[in-house]
Design a binder for these strands. Structure first.
Lengths: 131, 131
DNA sequence: CTGAATCCCACCCGATACTG
DNA sequence: CAGTATCGGGTGGGATTCAG
């Protein structure tokens, strides 16, 4: 087992590691944060372009997600006073380190999606037979 | 930029990569899946021990989370007919590859929690001043 | 010990309309 | 273009109860 020492602090009863992990995971565990960070991984983007790339996100949720990421110091918001207004978003240094950890996960998701879909089908049809 | 090629398929309009990524992230993006996978990373555990380690999870949610992970082929459920009954949970091979991608993320969460908490405080008190 | 079933509410998030 | 404000449905998930 290679991973034995990755989560030493989990057993700490009631305090420490696990709660903090939950704090952070709750933030990026919502519907859009991971996709925003992944999309900004290619470089800064303005609001409209970011929205276009993600495609299915609503105006409200994109704004909300960006605010929270900015609040946590993961994304930097830069306003350029023009008409029409221009706002660019970029990962901070800390945000970039998160993106580095996220990239393998996203890659994994793409690679293993077929396997997971197949497994779901097997499971569901096995359930059907036993009902 | 090192990560330029990690999300090549994102721009694919309406089909392909991004949707699949969302499929998978929706599964592990819930409140408990990541913590369950991380906890099982140390090795197989029976239901009660798993629950004790996570600590704050309700019976219902732990069972539900495990069912979904089993459905997706990430966790294997082994029943040993005894009295009282004994059920062990372990990562599958695929589940282990996910855990490998997850471990750096969790480590990141632990390391950066202080920074994030501080950033939140700064942001909130800056808001207060401007209100 | 492991788990299924039911109740129920907070909140997430989408749709829509309005503003500088 | 880049937001903010408001409303409302859907649902995630906790508490509780029952069962094998």
């Amino acid at each position: 087992m290679l991973q034995t020492n990755t989560n030493v602090s989990y057993q700490a009863p009631g305090h420490g590691g696990l709660c903090n992990v939950r704090d952070v995971l709750d933030r990026i565990g919502d519907r859009w944060s991971v996709l925003v960070i992944a999309t900004l991984g290619d470089g800064p983007l303005r609001y409209s372009e970011l929205r276009r790339r993600i495609g299915t996100v609503s105006q409200r949720m994109l704004t909300l997600t960006l605010r929270n990421l900015e609040r946590d110091g993961l994304v930097r918001r830069t306003v350029t006073p023009e008409t029409p207004p221009r706002v660019d978003y970029a990962l901070t240094e800390v945000g970039s380190t998160l993106h580095e950890r996220l990239a393998p996960l996203i890659e994994w998701a793409e690679e293993n999606h077929p396997h997971i879909a197949a497994s779901r089908e097997r499971f569901d049809s096995a359930l059907k037979r036993s009902s």
